[in-house]
């Protein structure tokens, strides 16, 4: 991504929306799905749902059914029964009129309603064709408790605003929506845990709170990595700093710290603002120096990192 784009996006950097956009744009599997529009509907849905299930944590995303060989959707009875936690879903929102004209080829122009609430059993009774389940708890969207989103096999299902979209677009939009909610949810959970741990560590200054702080910062960092997004420099700094401290305290092995340093190095430093990039580079270099006490090669790695920074600065001055 070019530097100008980054600057333009600076204000929204590291927000869930930005992370989602990054994810959406850069996820290779998703690119495959988008390009798979040429596929048969069954393949497309299957790919999409598989991708969703893979991208979201498995306990959150459930693929319940997909088209059969005759391009007819079918209920995967076993899946419903065997999916843990499914029975606890207490509300179901459906994007179709489920009681009639399911899979009807001539139902294209019919307005669909959204306000149908059913229990799982009822869904089964009406022969629901496919489902994507998502556990969503976000106040912003006014969802409360556990809700179930469904995608039905219709040629032109509609959104609540009664805008007709194509089947493929609908699937993509729903997938986007689910992913977005998932990212917001994960972001807020991760950030909250990390911030709480940081505060707790400052208050107590005991080993267990440092361990928690290091763990939550690492998890939050992993969240950014998973979503192909650039994490805030301060998060990388905190994560490295807390791990180096744990290493000094003998609570983290050389191997663990080295792995973390390698992971942090993967972040493309040029994507940061200059000062942030320097902060991250300095923190990584420091980690290598600390490890370098026991292994000269790692000390050399730290030195090379600092020298690359120095060379860059020198060339910029020239």
């Amino acid at each position: 991504m070019g530097k100008e784009n980054l600057i333009a996006k600076e204000e929204e950097l590291n927000t869930p929306k930005y992370i989602f956009d990054q994810h959406w744009k850069s996820h290779e599997k998703l690119q495959e799905i988008i390009s798979s529009c040429q596929l048969t509907k069954s393949d497309f849905i299957q790919n999409l749902l598989k991708w969703l299930a893979g991208t979201l944590d498995s306990e959150y995303a459930l693929l319940l059914s997909w088209p059969n060989e005759n391009n007819k959707m079918q209920i995967q009875e076993a899946s419903i029964k065997n999916t843990p936690g499914l029975n606890s879903f207490n509300e179901i929102i459906c994007f179709d009129c489920l009681r009639k004209k399911l899979n009807s080829e001539d139902a294209d122009d019919e307005h669909l309603v959204l306000n149908v609430t059913l229990k799982i059993k009822e869904l089964q009774e009406v022969n629901i064709q496919s489902l994507i389940a998502q556990k969503i708890i976000t106040k912003e969207r006014k969802f409360h408790g556990k809700q179930l989103l469904m995608v039905c096999n219709r040629k032109k299902p509609a959104f609540p605003g009664q805008v007709y979209v194509s089947y493929d677009n609908l699937c993509c939009d729903i997938a986007k929506w689910i992913l977005q909610l998932h990212i917001i949810d994960s972001y807020q959970t991760g950030k909250g845990r990390y911030a709480d741990a940081k505060k707790r560590f400052a208050e107590t200054n005991v080993a267990s709170s440092l361990v928690l702080f290091a763990k939550t910062s690492e998890e939050f960092l992993a969240f950014f990595d998973k979503n192909c997004s650039t994490p805030p420099a301060s998060l990388i700094y905190d994560c490295l700093n807390s791990h180096i401290s744990l290493f000094n305290a003998g609570a983290v092995t050389k191997h663990d710290l080295e792995n973390l340093l390698v992971e942090c190095e993967k972040h493309r430093l040029e994507e940061f603002k200059e000062i942030d990039s320097n902060l991250v580079r300095d923190a990584i270099a420091r980690g290598y120096f600390v490890l370098g006490i026991y292994d000269n090669q790692l000390w050399e790695k730290g030195r090379a990192l600092l020298e690359s920074k120095k060379n860059k600065e020198d060339s910029e001055h020239e």
């Binding site: 902060l279 006490i293 000390w299 600092l306």
Partner: peptide, 25 residues
């Protein structure tokens, strides 16, 4: 994090480089 903080970190990383080398030896 402000620029002064980063400058402190920058100075310190070079001192870390020396300190850790000494500890290594």
């Amino acid at each position: 994090m402000n620029e002064t903080f980063l400058k402190f970190e920058e100075a310190r990383v070079y001192w870390w480089q020396i300190f850790c080398k000494c500890r290594q030896i």
